[in-house]
Simulated scan of single mutants.
Amino acid sequence: MHRILVIEDDPAIRGVVRVLLAAEQYRVIEAATSARALIEARSHRPDLLLVDLGLPDGDGIKVIQSVREWSLVPILVLSARAMEAQKVAALDAGADDYVTKPFSAPELLARVRAALRRNARTAEQTPVLQFGEIRVDLGRREAKSPGAEVHLTPLEYRVLESLARHAGMIVTAQQLIREVWGPDRADDTRNLRVCLKNLRQKLEPDPARPQHIVTETGLGYRLRVGEF
């Protein structure tokens, strides 16, 4: 079941959108302010965001920019602002599509389906990584060694996904933290170190001498793996 975060301060519109989405078997999460939206986005990791631009505690464009600092989740704008410059500003901030209020139910649902399809195709292109005899399919979130399954936590998969997007290149600790935990945790290197240690224990042939998840002293980390 896809999770969709509806960010809208008007309870009547929010209710209409909730009913439309629920009827299509989507799980709906709601936020009426930009502050609440960022909390819900980080805690629920939705598959799609529907964002109103006119929020009581700030512009929805700020929400889009904040989410884009750490996530590639599809973002669909729902707004009464119809001027071209406003649409361009939202798209430049990182939105994927724009629906102007008032909107029809078929149009909104069609845009939602299209955004989720694009995201699914991107996930299908996510690489399968090889750590010695261990094979990790990031799209399916499966890790297997010969004859056994390797259990990775959702957090560990997110760290691997971030490293895989920059495979072979150095990724700083701050960039990993921003993409996985969010920009408000930029100084929380301890959790990152613990997560990387656990990944090495599970994936490296010799965790004390890692060959695949490599520390580049003073710079960051580099992922070196085989790829199908």
Results as ranks from 00 to 15, higher is better:
Leu48His: 10
Glu24Leu: 00
Trp70Ile: 07
Val28Gln: 07
Arg42Val: 02
Leu55Asn: 12
Ser43Trp: 08
Ser71Phe: 01
Pro46Ala: 11
Val67Tyr: 02
Arg42Gly: 12
Ala23Ile: 03
Val67Asp: 01
Leu78Asp: 07
Gly54Met: 12
Asp57Pro: 07
Val73Glu: 02
Arg68Ala: 02
Ser43Phe: 03
Glu69Asp: 14
Arg42Leu: 05
Glu40Asn: 12
Glu40Ala: 15
Ser34Cys: 13
Trp70Met: 07
Ile29Asp: 12
Leu38Thr: 01
Ser79Asp: 05
Leu20His: 00
Pro74Ile: 00
Gly54Thr: 09
Ala31Phe: 00
Ala35Glu: 14
Leu49Cys: 12
Thr33Lys: 09
Ile29Val: 14
Ile61His: 00
Trp70Val: 06
Ala32Lys: 13
Leu53Asn: 00
Asp52Phe: 03
Arg36Ala: 15
Val73His: 03
Ala41His: 07
Ala32Glu: 13
Leu55Gly: 13
Val28Met: 04
Leu76Gln: 10
Leu53Arg: 03
His44Thr: 15
Thr33Ala: 10
Val51Ile: 12
Ala31Tyr: 08
Leu20Val: 09
Val67Asn: 02
His44Trp: 08
Val28Leu: 04
Leu78Ser: 05
Glu69Phe: 06
Glu30Thr: 15
Pro56Ser: 06
Val19Gly: 09
Leu48Arg: 12
Ser43Pro: 02
Arg27Cys: 00
Ala22Leu: 07
Glu69Val: 14
Arg45Cys: 10
Ile75Arg: 04
Gln25Glu: 13
Pro56Phe: 05
Leu20Asp: 05
Ala22Asp: 08
Leu55Lys: 08
Leu38Gly: 12
Ala37His: 03
Ile29Ala: 14
Arg18Cys: 06
Pro74Ala: 02
Ile75Thr: 08
Ala80Asp: 09
Arg42Ile: 10
Val77Phe: 01
Leu53His: 06
Gln65His: 06
Val51Ser: 09
Tyr26Asp: 03
Ala31Cys: 10
Ala41Arg: 00
Pro46Arg: 09
Asp57Ala: 11
Ser43Gly: 05
Glu30Gly: 15
Ala32Cys: 12
Glu30Arg: 13
Glu40Phe: 02
Glu30Cys: 11
Ala22Gly: 14
Leu20Phe: 03
Asp59Arg: 13
